[in-house]
């Protein structure tokens, strides 16, 4: 590449081109990364930020079946917040997101600490816990739908096992249905969080722990005062990843409960889909999409700000 380029410029300019040669090579070197990155950059610009902007514009219009570019002020947002189903979706997101992130972090940390005890067959166990991550949420949702179904799954198993009065019908209970989504999501994601924590644990300097042991600290104290605090960056990245999984969760809900019973396990993403695409209310759907974006921003920006402002460590 370099050679042909040089030859091409060198030929017509003959003697005078001796100075230009290194400059052109440098210029290509300087431009090459930009040229290679340009398509990705343009794609990101158009398909991410461009469409965010378009959605924002649509949310301010009275669009119904097709986009209609008339200014409607905040009417769509007013309609959105007057909609009972939207409030339920927000409540479900809070319940689901909160429980999912906390339980995932707790289970992931616990598994990582247990695995870190230099046990035999660690590689195998690690793979087993990590494996659900390889499934798509659709598969997870469908499998758990069967497992949690009262007449096929766990409840049936308990009945057959002699516990005649056992009840486990969260899937068909409008109050509890959203927690079945938590169960399935935790099952899928906690292995991944475990892997993150395990990597963090392996990165902790052994000598600190040894020093603490010399000072007579017990193992629980060492974990509580030294190891877990030093995992702070891992908590940070896990939190970021889990939060955005929670806000954009769509496929899992669709496969597991389909928003049901009724619309009791609706989340903002399923709300947005049904209003924008099946009910010819694009404006309202766009408004709900903007609210989802704001939720992500509201949760992540302050967190990122406070984390990134701290001096970097290890």
């Amino acid at each position: 590449m370099d050679l042909t380029a040089q030859r091409m410029t060198a030929a017509p300019e003959s003697g005078a081109g001796t100075e230009a040669k290194p400059r052109l090579g440098d210029r290509i070197d300087a431009w090459l990364p930009k040229i290679v990155l340009a398509p990705t950059f343009v794609c990101a610009l158009v398909f991410i930020y461009g469409y965010i902007l378009w959605t924002a514009v649509l949310s301010l219009t009275p669009s119904r079946m097709l986009p209609k570019y008339e200014f409607a002020g905040l009417a769509q947002f007013e309609a959105l917040f007057a909609n009972e189903r939207w409030w339920l979706a927000l409540k479900n997101l809070a319940l689901f997101g909160g429980t999912f992130v906390l339980v995932c972090l707790a289970v992931g940390l616990l598994l990582a600490i247990l695995l870190d005890q230099k046990i035999r067959g660690e590689g195998l166990i690690r793979s087993i816990y990590l494996y659900p991550m390889a499934l798509s949420f659709i598969v997870t949702g469908t499998a758990w739908k069967w497992i949690l179904n009262p007449e096929l799954g766990i409840e049936r198993l308990l009945h057959d096992g002699g516990f005649e009065n056992a009840r486990f019908d969260w899937l068909i209970d409008p109050e509890m249905a959203i927690y079945t989504v938590v169960v399935a999501a935790v099952w899928q994601s906690s292995g991944f969080v475990m892997a993150l924590f395990l990597a963090g644990l392996r990165g902790i300097d052994d000598s600190i722990i040894k020093a603490a042991q010399v000072d007579g600290a017990s193992m629980p104290t060492i974990y509580r005062r030294i190891i877990i605090p030093s995992l702070r960056p891992v908590f940070f990245s896990s939190f970021m990843i889990l939060t955005h999984i929670a806000v954009k969760s769509f496929d899992l809900v669709m496969a597991l409960t389909n928003g049901g019973p009724g619309f009791s396990s609706d989340v903002p993403a399923t709300f947005m889909y049904s209003f924008a695409f099946t009910r010819n209310q694009i404006g309202l759907g766009a408004a709900s999409a903007m609210m989802m974006l704001m939720i992500v921003v509201a949760v992540i920006v302050p967190f990122m700000y406070s984390e990134l402002r701290r001096p970097r460590h290890g």
């Binding site: 119904r64 009972e84 189903r85 409008p174 049901g260 019973p261 009724g262 619309f263 009791s264 049904s274 209003f275 099946t278 009910r279 010819n280 209310q281």
Partner: peptide, 17 residues
């Protein structure tokens, strides 16, 4: 579709509550 959808929400909510 918008009206039918809103009414369907009420009906299914009643059925499940």
């Amino acid at each position: 579709a918008a009206t039918a959808g809103a009414m369907q929400d009420v009906v299914t909510q009643f059925f499940n509550t």
